[in-house]
Amino acid sequence: MPPEQPSPFQTPAFNEAGEDMLNWTETWQRRRRLAALAVDQGDADGGDSGDETFSGGGGGNDLADATGADDLTSQIVVLPDGSKVPDSHSPTGFMMAPVADLSHVAAAGREAGNIYERMARTSLLLRNPLGRFAAVPYLVGSLGVHLGQGGTFDYQRKGNSVAGFARLPQFRNVSNFNVGLFGQQAGLSLDQIKFLAGAFARFNSSNAKPDEPFGLDADTAKFIEHGFDAGRSGIFNQPRSR
């Protein structure tokens, strides 16, 4: 039987110009293997599930090279009741973050909500509509500072607007989770959070999905909902009653 002749139409999937893409794919796959390996080792060492930690820093730190980031420690998020958040895209099967405990996200959300409430109440007592006028931008600004690009709880971007941002895509889902958790603890409804989160996507991105509620990707909306539900469940302490 003669050797199989290559199809006249067959073109290598990666030609010379595609080498970068091949390298990037290998980096991605290596990162997933490192993550799975590190978690396996953590289990083998008898480590507590809440302390499962890995770093992509070994072996030349390919991801760090790719992102410019220098701290790639990841941990499985463990909620205050001991549960974890399933994440089918995570190499561990659970949502990963730079920190395992997100209580500080909830606390910051409650603080922002309390300040907003005080500003709004004061303006009402003083019959000063300008107070209310200031309260709303405070809340929106607080969302931006904490959850916006490079914000305190935006784990998927590292850096600043001057020097530029490095992307940490492995933390995208937890960053969306934080949006839901922070907003819920601040006293916003799920629809309000999704409206705020999706408004910019509709306004700015050509990839916005007008057919989806609030223009959000299904994955994005799902993790915002997970964060909101976690906050609403009371495991992070009760939010303010509004």
């Binding site: 998927q156 995208r172 969306n176 996507a201 990839n207 990707d217 994005t220 915002i224």
Partner: peptide
């Protein structure tokens, strides 16, 4: 990768 409030 877009990042304002939602991250996509």
């Amino acid at each position: 990768n877009c990042d304002f409030i939602a991250k996509e």
